[in-house]
Amino acid sequence: MSPVVATAAEVAIALLAAALLLCLYRLLRGPSPQDRILALDTLYIDTLALLVVAGVRFAEPAFFDAALVIALLGFLGTVALAKFRLRGDILD
């Protein structure tokens, strides 16, 4: 792989790491439960992006399957938590 792509991937990983820290700050700080759910959802999506970039950096397609699983489970988790806040019950 060309050094341009490798360097760009490393820069992107650093930026995403900073994004993850900001999400962690909001997750710990709150104040409302919805803020924490939103922070967790953003954490999922940023982690997905981080895994995809790592897959590019190491030229390894297997990272991508992990990203797919995170996309599916992250959405289900967010919906379940939001519904729980809405009704005190997850299933209708």
């Binding site: 991937a9 820069v11 992107a12 930026l15 995403l16 994004a19 900001l22 940023d46 970039v53």
Partner: peptide, 14 residues
């Protein structure tokens, strides 16, 4: 694309 994408993700988290 990698760098702009990561920058947008950072802006969203910011």
């Amino acid at each position: 694309l990698l760098v702009t994408g990561a920058a947008f993700a950072l802006v969203g988290s910011l």
